[in-house]
Design a protein around this nucleic acid. Structure first.
Length: 584
RNA sequence: GCGGGUGUAGCUCAGUGGUAGAGCAUCACGUUGCCAACGUGAUGGUCGUGGGUUCGAGUCCCAUCACCCGCUCCA
């Protein structure tokens, strides 16, 4: 079972050195995060895995690393300066928020009020200025020096289309990959690192023939689009994401960005907030390359709803030697978030497992308490039922309803605090799980914590810490990360830290493996605790140097997921680990 | 930005106006023959921040910041 909540992941990330809140000593800065020693390793692994897959393993791709700070002109002509901002109005009465450009009149569609705030514009791009002089906002001088932190890496790829094509002598179809930071002043960041204002992208612009030049037997833009969707989908699966939690979803026409003919999102089923986009594969047509080009024919400008570009000095076209024609290529864009990928892999890898069977002496008292909790819950359910029946008598408009009368439906239930239906469901589940103790210990722990029917019940409050304590004693947290993604690859322990011969060998193995993989030597606790620590950060292998090592030069190799142990010759360690970690 | 909630040690929390605490974690020493062992000791907090009330504020008031949950956002 993967993570039950983002909170679990956030805690683990902070506690074990993956991710810390940014600017923490000064109270933090919203939506900015610092990646710690383990986080930076994992980000690096994600990026390398992606780069290997889309650049090294293909024969039609090149790489690029463009500047983050980009001329304002780029974003004017890409359409971002005009489009990448949302004029918003708030309804003062019901507090709903609407896009001003989606309202047909000056009336709130939710409550009908006309008491709306004036539209306020949120440009999603961070801006700065090149040069030391600060000019007054909006003046020609200010606009001349204004630059934007790129909101997507894509545009620097478009700017370099001809450079890459010419210097690497590429023929269409080919693509350019880029990994780098992007910045968006999001109105609503949140869900930990899912949506942040500074994030990292992995983007490809794959240049293909425009439809009118595609010959029989060649792939159309739609076929290329499909192919990239499945390519990218498979990449996520190859790194351990379960297909039941990854889906492809084609965007509706209304959802499409200003540049796209079609977009399919890859969505992961996150805890707490459900399906969330982790990658978008867009068919951007020839929109961007045309937008940045001078000398585009009127017909094409009209088709793409573009203005004539008088600023650009280039035309981003391509001479196709086979077709003997010059054209502006179309573009398929697979675009994923690195930081979002990290959250995805962490959620997917997070597991809690019962590794120790609680004894009957520990479980039996729990059963007694569960029985009394069930009895109490049933009593509360009956009382609530009765209360509900009575409260139906006074009609809406009574004093109790007045205060909540204007609230949107579902915001506050002023009725009895117990919901008989929820309690009945809770009781049924608890009964069933009780029958499966001790195996169901974790499920009960979760049920007491999460189930709506369990809230506000006194015996449950008493029961919860006891179940939780026992669960903690019997559980291990393990990140079942794909070995490629694990921040630490191998941990090395001496079975007895006061035995110089054992310690020496442990340190020697550490030094021997260090140039090839991230290793961690640890002698600061008993062997069991050392294993658990590594499980929690997803280290695939642990090596223990023991007394037998002194006799036959073998060590214990312990595998994370199965906890199985085997003996391996020290001389074979490096080779074997390289193989099993996919490093060789 | 608006509404609701939260903020005390790395973590989980106790502390209702009178000398800042517990458990876990971390570190040191000893002990320990493979899955969160034990003993002894130690480190660690201007109680989110700033202001106010008070002889005295973790506690009461105001402001502010951050996080969480909602509000058409998309990597």
């Amino acid at each position: 079972m993967p993570a039950r909540s983002i909170e679990q992941i956030r805690n683990l990330c902070k506690r074990r050195g993956f991710i810390f809140p940014g600017s923490a000593a000064y109270g933090g800065l919203g939506s900015f995060w610092d990646y710690g020693p383990l986080g930076v390793e994992m980000l690096g692994h994600i990026k390398r895995a992606w780069w290997r897959n889309v650049v090294y393993e293909r024969d039609d791709m090149e790489g690029l690393d463009g500047a983050i700070i980009t001329s304002r002109k780029v974003w004017q002509h890409s359409g971002h300066e005009a489009t990448f901002s949302d004029p918003l109005v708030d309804c003062k009465k019901c507090r709903a928020r609407h896009r001003a450009d989606h309202l047909t009149s000056n009336v709130c569609p939710k409550c009908g009020s006309t008491d709306l705030t004036p539209p306020r514009s949120f440009n999603l791009m961070f801006q700065s200025h090149v040069g030391p002089v600060a000019a007054e906002v909006g003046t020609d001088e200010e606009l001349a020096s204004r630059v934007y932190l790129r909101p997507e890496t894509a545009q620097t790829i478009f700017m370099n289309f001809k450079h890459v094509q010419a210097t690497l002598r590429r023929k269409v179809p080919f693509g350019v990959a880029q990994i780098g930071k992007a910045f968006r002043n999001e109105i609503t960041p949140g869900n930990f690192i899912f949506r942040t204002r500074e994030f990292e992208q992995m983007e490809i612009e794959f240049f293909i023939k425009p439809p009118q030049f595609v010959k029989d037997g060649e792939k159309t833009d739609e076929q290329w689009h499909e192919e990239w969707i499945s390519q990218r989908y498979n990449w996520w699966l190859s790194l351990g994401v379960d297909p039941s939690r990854l889906r492809k979803r084609a965007q509706d026409k209304a959802e499409l960005a200003h540049y796209a003919k079609a977009t399919t999102d890859l969505e992961y089923l996150f805890p707490d907030f459900g399906w969330g986009e982790v990658e978008g594969v867009a068919n951007r047509t020839d929109f961007d390359l045309s937008a940045h080009s001078r000398d585009i024919p009127e017909a094409d400008l009209a088709r793409l709803k573009l203005e004539k570009n008088a600023d650009s000095t280039e035309t981003f076209d391509y001479f196709d030697p086979e077709a003997k024609a010059r054209y502006i290529p179309w573009v398929i864009e697979p675009s994923a978030g690195v930081t979002r990928a990290m959250l995805t892999f962490l959620c997917e890898a997070y597991h809690e497992e019962l590794v120790k069977e609680p004894t009957p002496a520990e479980v039996d008292p729990l059963k007694v308490e569960i029985d009394s909790a069930i009895k109490n819950a049933q009593k509360k359910a009956k009382e609530a039922e009765k209360l509900r029946a009575e409260s139906r008598v006074p009609s809406p408009g009574s004093t109790a309803d007045k205060a909540a009368g204007d609230a949107a439906p579902g915001t506050r239930d002023t009725g009895p605090k117990h919901d008989p239906v929820a309690i009945a469901d809770f009781v049924a589940k608890l009964e069933e799980m009780k029958g499966r103790l001790p195996a169901s210990l974790l499920e009960i722990d979760n049920l007491l914590e999460e189930h709506p029917g369990a809230q506000n019940l006194e015996p449950v409050k008493k029961l919860k810490p006891k179940v939780n304590k026992l669960a903690e004693d019997c559980v291990r947290v393990v990140l079942r990360l794909h070995p490629t993604l694990a921040p630490i690859k191998v941990a090395i322990f001496p079975l007895k830290k006061n035995e110089p011969a054992i310690v020496d060998i442990g340190r020697r193995i550490t030094k021997q493996l260090a140039p090839f993989m991230r290793v961690q030597y640890d002698d600061s606790a008993g062997i069991g605790r050392l294993y658990r620590r590594q499980d929690e950060i997803g280290t695939p292998f642990c090596i223990t140097v023991d007394f037998q090592t002194l006799e036959d030069n073998t060590v214990t190799l312990r595998e994370r997921d199965s906890m199985a142990q085997s003996r391996v010759k020290i001389d074979d360690l490096k080779h074997m680990l390289m193989q099993r970690l996919h490093l060789a």
